[in-house]
Design a protein around this nucleic acid. Structure first.
Lengths: 234, 234
DNA sequence: TATCTATGTTTGACTACCCTAACAAATAAC
DNA sequence: GTTATTTGTTAGGGTAGTCAAACATAGATA
């Protein structure tokens, strides 16, 4: 049974590997993610290596062991189930769920999380569109790409966000966007890489950064099938 | 915002004062309740005194300040609401809820607990019959006495337990007892102070210790009204 | 009252987690 | 291929919470 802090290190390692590639995780990057100094992260890495949750050589890159990855996925499962609970049952908005789930994810009780899963009717995705691992740690993979990949004239459906920060989520909601929103790409500007979109009849322009954080599938896409229009199958 | 540990000290102080009288709380008693050594408890008491949550003189007895009592009640509110959630929504048995609630009670989010309260339809009592403080810390007091006070021949209704330990709760459940069970006192033995009871047509004998941990009201008792038969109004 | 026992307090030490500052290795720039 | 920069590591130190052991006080016993 790991401490609250140790769990956060494992989760951060998992998140960074997933978002930025397994071979890019270093002490500094990890420390930044956890808002601690590199020296601190280094100490903890030694401890987690000692406990066989991470594998790394001095001055080398950091990887989770199988045990470490398994532990991390279990925490992510808890996090996303709690987010779903807060959103679906307790009327939290999608930008509020994250910080409370950061606390709830550390509660130790197998039974609790499995019963919660059942209570929520085994949801596959959390309020941000992220997949919820099942009891065994298996994740339902969904073909998706970002709004950047959608060609002008095409239309797509929003299925997730990449950035879970309050600021971004509130911005997204203010534009009338949300999961399953239908987005039509009106035009793309080569000048600043911005994208003109139309949502529920209203047009807006969004930046490249914004578009890169919106995950979409094309309108005709079905889960498990390669998509003809976009490159959803990538 | 207090730490996890500090919160546990406040809660323990509150529980002991309530169960054993305000003027009986000493360093040793507190340390025993928290399963730490007196030296440790003493250190923490200094810290909590510094922060004005407890008031005590050297070698004197320990009391919570108003702020301390308020904080403690807020934790108890959270604990009991979580217990109710686990019991009512997640199919936990009444002997399982306590240990998970011990963790959940430390989650920091006003909104979470108030929404949970709403979700549970503002319950007044937890699965053990203990009253749940409302948002302002007010507790609904209920006239009750213990099974020891019920005279032979009389009948009563169980409304709470004093002991929340797994062992006791499982024992109670195994006898077919539970909240709102109707208990008829068949006889009382002067020899060993045991009590013969009848529950749902079945007779058993319970010890003095057992009977002292079962809270009851008489069958005709209504909340808010003094009871004619038993000494419920005490 | 004098002593014995309970209870409460202080001291010094340990672990977990964090820091700053100094240093070492790897990588990039020239 | 040497230097400069980035990245990672070590050393030493701080706080929170814990302990054992020594000590002090209060209350009970004789």
């Amino acid at each position: 049974m790991l401490s609250f802090t140790e769990e956060n290190y494992l989760k951060a390692l998992h998140n960074i590997s997933e978002a930025e590639g397994v071979d890019l995780v270093g002490t500094n990057r990890l420390a930044a993610a956890l808002q601690v100094k590199p020296a601190t992260a280094n100490d903890m890495l030694k401890k987690l290596k000692e406990k066989s949750y991470v594998a790394y050589e001095k001055y080398g890159k950091i990887k989770l062991t199988d045990a470490g990855a398994q532990y991390a996925v279990a925490i992510i499962r808890k996090h996303r189930l709690w987010e779903t609970f807060l959103y679906q049952k307790l009327e939290f908005s999608w930008d509020e769920v994250h910080e409370v789930a950061e606390q709830l994810e550390h509660i130790q009780s197998e039974k609790l999380i499995d019963k919660l899963d059942k209570f929520l009717a085994y949801p596959a995705f959390d309020p941000h569109g992220d997949p919820i691992p099942n009891q065994k740690g298996a994740i339902k993979v969904r073909f998706k790409t970002t709004l950047l990949d959608v060609a002008a004239g095409a239309s797509c459906r929003m299925v997730a966000v990449k950035d879970n920060s309050k600021l971004f989520l509130q911005y997204v909601a203010n534009l009338g966007l949300g999961l399953n929103a239908i987005i039509k790409v009106v035009a793309k500007q080569d000048y600043d890489a911005s994208t003109q979109i139309e949502v529920a009849g209203k047009q807006t322009s969004v930046s490249e950064k914004f578009a890169s954080n919106i995950f979409v599938i094309c309108n005709t896409c079905k889960v498990g099938q390669p998509c003809p229009g976009l490159r959803c199958q990538v």
